[in-house]
């Protein structure tokens, strides 16, 4: 077995390029799906709050599906299954324009939107009922009460859970490897194949993942502290 030599990986221009592109792809997928998931989560919450029973049941079914089916299976269903149902023209276009990444962002975004919307809903439920009463007593309508009193508190309550699930989303970007996206884990596996230096290449990727996850966790903790100071009862 060759001796431990980190620099053989880092200084090699080919490997360096692969690592850099892999990291970029990971961030693109993570950020893209995060934005998609957050926007969709707000929509899901609004739909859930409407008085229509059908709409509520729809959201419940959506959340239930995405929380109970493994994320990898969801990715496969989208990339292998649903793509085959698309018209050939669209399939061709996707094939040339990194369709894997598109499907990865869609699948991961849809999945995490379910978790984010539940986090927001829990945040809303933990706002004390007296707040809504006070808003009504002052004459605010439903929308006004939501906008100025309830949702600001709901979001602050939901920050810890949202941060946890954001870290999960970031980690799930590695699953895109299974459908061929050249993100960080994929890059590292390729480097290992070529250089036979598994330890060093894995270590680099692990440290990069860890650094970013810890960054999100600590930024989240700081946000959570600020939120709690403002809303402490």
């Amino acid at each position: 077995m060759k001796g431990f030599d980190l620099m053989a990986i880092l200084l090699n221009p080919e490997f360096g390029r692969m690592l850099w592109h892999g990291a970029q792809m990971t961030l693109v997928i993570a950020l893209g799906s995060w934005l998609f998931a957050m926007s969709l989560a707000v929509v899901l919450l609004v739909v859930r709050l409407t008085p229509s029973r059908i709409a509520q049941r729809g959201v419940v079914a959506y959340v239930s599906y995405h929380q109970n089916v493994p994320t990898l299976v969801q990715l496969m269903l989208w990339y292998f299954g649903i793509s085959s149902l698309l018209p050939d023209v669209l399939q061709g276009w996707l094939g040339e324009h990194s369709g894997e990444s598109v499907f990865a962002i869609i699948a991961l975004g849809l999945c995490q939107a379910a978790y984010f919307s539940e986090d927001l809903r829990s945040g809303l439920r933990s706002v004390p009922p007296g707040q809504a009463e006070a808003a009504r007593a002052l004459g605010h309508g439903y929308v006004g009460a939501m906008r100025h009193v309830l949702m600001p508190q709901a979001i602050r309550n939901a920050v810890p859970a949202l941060v946890n699930h954001s870290v999960s989303l970031f980690k799930n970007s590695s699953l895109a490897m299974a459908i061929g996206v050249a993100e960080l884990t994929h890059a590292v596996k390729e480097i290992e194949n070529q250089s036979f230096r598994a330890f060093e290449s894995y270590l680099i990727a692990t440290l990069m993942y860890l650094a970013f996850s810890l960054l999100i966790m600590f930024a989240g903790a700081w946000l959570g502290r600020r939120a709690r100071v403002a809303t402490a009862r």
Binding site: G130, E133, R136, G139, P152, Q153
Partner: peptide
């Protein structure tokens, strides 16, 4: 509009904490 004309003070204050 009617409620906005009735001043109401709660036992548990219900100030908006944020």
């Amino acid at each position: 509009r009617l409620r906005s004309r009735v001043g109401f003070v709660f036992q548990s204050f219900n100030l908006f904490p944020h």
